[in-house]
Nucleic acid binder design. Sequence first.
DNA 1: CCATCTTTGTGCACGCGTTCACAAAGACAT
DNA 2: ATGTCTTTGTGAACGCGTGCACAAAGATGG
Lengths: 252, 252
Amino acid sequence: MATGRTHRPATRSRGIPEATVARLPLYLRALTALSERSVPTVSSEELAAAAGVNSAKLRKDFSYLGSYGTRGVGYDVEYLVYQISRELGLTQDWPVVIVGIGNLGAALANYGGFASRGFRVAALIDADPAMAGKPVAGMPVQHTDDLERIISDNGVSIGVIATPAGAAQQVCDRLVAAGITSILNFAPTVLSVPDGVDVRKVDLSIELQILAFHEQRKAGEDAAADDGTAAPAVAKDHRKGPDGDVPAVMPA
Amino acid sequence: MATGRTHRPATRSRGIPEATVARLPLYLRALTALSERSVPTVSSEELAAAAGVNSAKLRKDFSYLGSYGTRGVGYDVEYLVYQISRELGLTQDWPVVIVGIGNLGAALANYGGFASRGFRVAALIDADPAMAGKPVAGMPVQHTDDLERIISDNGVSIGVIATPAGAAQQVCDRLVAAGITSILNFAPTVLSVPDGVDVRKVDLSIELQILAFHEQRKAGEDAAADDGTAAPAVAKDHRKGPDGDVPAVMPA
DNA sequence: CCATCTTTGTGCACGCGTTCACAAAGACAT
DNA sequence: ATGTCTTTGTGAACGCGTGCACAAAGATGG
Ligand SMILES: NC(=O)c1ccc[n+]([C@@H]2O[C@H](COP(=O)([O-])OP(=O)(O)OC[C@H]3O[C@@H](n4cnc5c(N)ncnc54)[C@H](O)[C@@H]3O)[C@@H](O)[C@H]2O)c1
Ligand SMILES: NC(=O)c1ccc[n+]([C@@H]2O[C@H](COP(=O)([O-])OP(=O)(O)OC[C@H]3O[C@@H](n4cnc5c(N)ncnc54)[C@H](O)[C@@H]3O)[C@@H](O)[C@H]2O)c1
């Protein structure tokens, strides 16, 4: 197959499980809120509730970072905020480029939640010549021609792709060639990247489809013997249609 | 704890594993692309490559749906599109309301990827009286006062929250009270919902922080004996600061 | 009709993640 | 100092998800 590397093999980084890493930002958010209310310490039970996880899980997660708690008391909020921030690499700030300044890209550019969490939008890049120079979120949009130079000049290692799906792989390739090693992809496509490059994707169509699945299941259970568990009649009739016996519905 | 139910206990729905459900939309997307190119059949190997997963995993996933393949040949593309669509509940279309028509909410409203996948934006809702009546994506924004009526009138069961974090729980409560049973939450907060209500969240700050973690790790490995694996000196010095010995960095 | 070749469907083993449950650590009161 | 009480940190068991590897199914050609 000509398809390159696609999903990293869960490179258990320095012993911290991937699942734990994914929860650290959650804890950090909850801790930051406590910090702002000047709460000095917090128990695993309280913090777990605030983060929406099991308390045993939280304690085990923290145990991977070291023993930062005090038995009988809990965790020092400020100290833990710092430890998690350091572990996540948020004590430095990360320049980020956003490629594809359309509906979504512009919304991202305007989003304040970046800067407040250690990320700095270094540049906005779009292929549309008509957009070049136009200010979005108080920052001029730059043309794709300069992509390599922008990334190099600013030492950017994280890129966000918000272009149409058709352009995503091509943009991805250029980003990687220019030195980007982490990509957040909003386009509904599977990106192929070489080893050493991390890709995370956000696809809300997928999220909605998962919700729809459960929604349908709920409806089916409620209806019980309404029409018999959704549509088993179709499922029962299992043999592939000779040519065009597939029902006319065909979404997507 | 006063905190209500927060995460569903992975209700293994009719034997289909949650992990499989989460991949079905991925397969569907790849299959739809093949369908548009009029490819009649596809092998598990090819489809897996297109979807960015392992072929064994794909076959196992499909085995939960039934035996829809033909040995020696592969899967009938059209037929599989239909089966997966049906399984995901996409043969009906789902009315969706978006609450909070700011930067992000407007981008979502303008997004074409909804309709093409069986979802229909039934209404846009915002609390700002100045926005009421204003057209966004060719549809007038409605005021929060009418939230309950809108949901009831349109039989909406899926809601998208794109309000600021502070308003999210309150909006969530109203949505649930009005009959919504599935929520896609973009606000960076943990939502408490009663049993029977599904919540999925999209938080790009979290995604970026996960990328930053791996990015830092890569940098640390490259630098090797540069300053000694990132910052172990700080970690070594483990005792909680009496008061304010936490370094000044403190992000988030 | 038989042989060959391709590709599915799945049994099985393994590793990761989750959760329970408890011993040990330490705070705090007496 | 001693006892009590709270809460951490973790060993161990369990369940889910993943991927290997292969037998069985069926297509295809002779
Ligand atoms: N808008 C949403 O809410 C939403 C939701 C989910 C996913 N998405 C996905 O995000 C992506 C962007 O969505 P959108 O609604 O902002 O689309 P859009 O059409 O509004 O914006 C796309 C932008 O990308 C630019 N672009 C095109 N090709 C480019 C290239 N090669 N290099 C650089 N820039 C290029 C275009 O000029 C345009 O400005 C799409 O893939 C879409 O499927 C969007
Ligand atoms: N913009 C982004 O790219 C982005 C990215 C990630 C997360 N988010 C999150 O998404 C949410 C929205 O972001 P945004 O940039 O669109 O913010 P925004 O301020 O542009 O929009 C918020 C909108 O919600 C409306 N609103 C406020 N309270 C409401 C209520 N009680 N009921 C109904 N509507 C209400 C406001 O009138 C406003 O129109 C925020 O929670 C933000 O953290 C945004």
